[in-house]
Design a protein around this nucleic acid. Structure first.
Lengths: 340, 340
DNA sequence: TACTCCACTGAAAGCGCTGTCACCATTAAA
DNA sequence: TTTAATGGTGACAGCGCTTTCAGTGGAGTA
């Protein structure tokens, strides 16, 4: 059933070598011969066998993308960006998900098909010794997304969260007169939470804002848990004239709703800001002041880096940092909120 | 660098045939020999070359998933479901996106890599002659998602939207006393819109509710356009004591906000219901009464069907219909809204 | 003893492709 | 006229694997 290069060769009265040459646009093939071969190809609807080709060239034109879970807008946007760019560059995309708190075994399994993919983009939300060890075993072009794993030489795409947090909190402090800021983050081991918390501590310290242990909360990035926390805390926070910096929009939404449930209003009684600028950021009332994270660009950048390395394996490792953007809406209580 | 079957054979002092037999668990290999081979394999960290294997077996263990665009929760959930199930069944997933209103050329391109994938799950939101023709050309196991393409013999996974719409509108009519229902859908050519509109006409007819041409609107499934339409129409709708059935949650949210902007409230002045039960359904105030669509199950089911057909190509085509579920919240104005 | 049978193993033939090499006309250069 | 260069082509050796077929040696049977 499948038509092979031999069939094409027979129909065009040439050898398979010539067909191969036409296919690969190399060496010189006579105009007429090429025409004959080309029409034979289209007549037969021939397309080269991927495996035979891969066997010879040791290239599959498949890129792997490994993500922790596949929930939510963040991941789907990364996939979208990666997919589009991969297509542009003539690659296919293979997706695998691993659980967020992976001990390395899932990562290993997902990565198992070395030799199938020409390169691998891996996003790890928690870096530990196991994942590190697994990454080191990977011998094909590798890009680490949203996390720089020390001790492993590889390309990486990170988001410049620090700048985003700084802009966001400065806005809260300078434009919204916040004198106290509560931090609501994800798990303490989460890579994004760590970065955002660091930046938070830095900005507050700079501004002379006191941060006590009870000002820092570690949840799980979900609306519900943030809501629960909020139910217990919003009155106290409001009393202390604090603003809330949630490390993602979902949690910010949970806090806003908890405040509302407690009879408080945002931003008057309790300013709240989020992070990521996902769909929920414009669904809350008031809408969220947040930081836009270039999610799909991240996917695209990863693919770019991967392809560059495939073409030039010797190139020194690159760390690409993507800009974020402060998006001011109403939840922060800024006097002149910019509509966006 | 890459270790081949020959290396393993050398190290275990056997022929490559024996190694292959150990690998494929077939024929009988002596216990001791097998042990030797197995330890050679793990010593060398050998794993068979995917291409050589594919070349022989004509199987890649890769499944393709082609989706229209990759925006939004719907698609990411489908991917998630498909990915998980594929993993369970020992397959890899390759993703491609095509534009929603594809003329068939993108689909063809996405599908071009026949021979790479063992099977293909395709979701088409608009069926036309071109896409139909393209689908007919596909000679590998094929599952069509969310749309039955007549004239093409294939497996399909559909959502029983009709039942969902019936339950939703009956609820609106019987429990919420709606005497008039406005339909806001996607493009007229959109496959989901067509089904939902059909069911809408049926239910309204059954209930003796009059539907004029101006009661049916075709937008694009986006919040913004629904909001714009709402701005122009909500007063009129409210005056006529109509309820709004939006064909997805995003548009329902847009209408609710338009009503609010016009000084009207949902559900008192204008009941609104949505469809899909995505994240936004619980972000609106009031929260949306809507129909839950099993998005990730859809992806999983597609993979199931694909694998079944790969195992048994002769099996007659199957059409799998997935159940939806009415989710009653507050936007419909039901007297006793069930919290969900 | 001679034969068959059986458990096990190796040699070798491809799978469909790419790439090297040799070859054959021509034509240009010596 | 001989030699070399050049455009164009085919033969063929793999790539790493699976699978068929043909042993091989020892146990069982006549």
């Amino acid at each position: 059933m499948p038509v092979s290069i031999q069939d094409v060769a027979d129909r065009a009265n040439v050898s398979i070598s010539t067909v191969s040459r036409v296919l690969n646009r190399r060496n010189i093939v006579n105009q007429e011969t090429r025409k004959r071969v080309e029409s034979a190809i289209s007549d037969l609807g021939y397309s080269p066998n991927v495996f035979a080709r891969g066997l010879m060239l040791r290239k599959s034109h498949i890129l792997g993308l490994v993500l922790p879970d596949l929930h939510g807008e963040f991941y789907s946007e990364v996939i979208r960006g990666a997919n589009l760019r991969a297509r542009e560059l003539g690659y296919n995309l293979m997706i695998s998900s691993i659980v967020a708190k992976d001990d390395g075994s899932e990562l290993m399994a997902a990565v198992g098909d070395h030799g199938l993919v020409d390169g691998l983009a891996v996003m790890i939300s928690e870096v530990n010794a196991r994942t590190r060890a697994t990454l080191e075993k990977i011998k094909i072009p590798l890009v680490v997304l949203d996390g720089d794993v020390d001790g492993v030489k590889h390309d990486s795409v990170v988001i410049d969260q620090r700048t985003g947090v700084v802009a966001l909190l400065r806005h809260l402090i300078e434009d919204c007169q916040a004198r106290r800021i509560v931090f609501v983050g994800g798990l303490e081991t989460n890579i994004d939470t760590i970065e955002r918390l660091d930046a938070y501590r830095e900005v507050t310290a700079d501004a002379g804002i006191e941060v006590t242990a009870s000002d820092v909360h570690h949840l799980d990035y979900q609306y519900d848990t943030a809501f629960e926390l909020g139910v217990k805390k919003v009155r106290e926070w409001a009393r202390r004239r604090a603003a809330v910096f949630a490390a993602n929009d979902e949690m910010a939404a949970g806090i806003i709703d908890a405040a509302l449930a407690a009879g408080l209003s945002t931003p008057d009684d309790l300013p709240v800001v989020g992070f990521d600028d996902t769909r929920v950021a414009t669904m809350t009332r008031p809408r969220l002041t947040t930081v836009r994270v270039p999610m799909s660009s991240m996917g695209a950048a990863a693919i770019d880096l991967l392809c560059q390395r495939i073409e030039n394996p010797k190139r020194p490792a690159v760390k690409l940092s993507l800009e974020t953007e402060l998006v001011v809406r109403e939840s922060c209580g800024a006097p002149s909120a910019i509509t966006s």
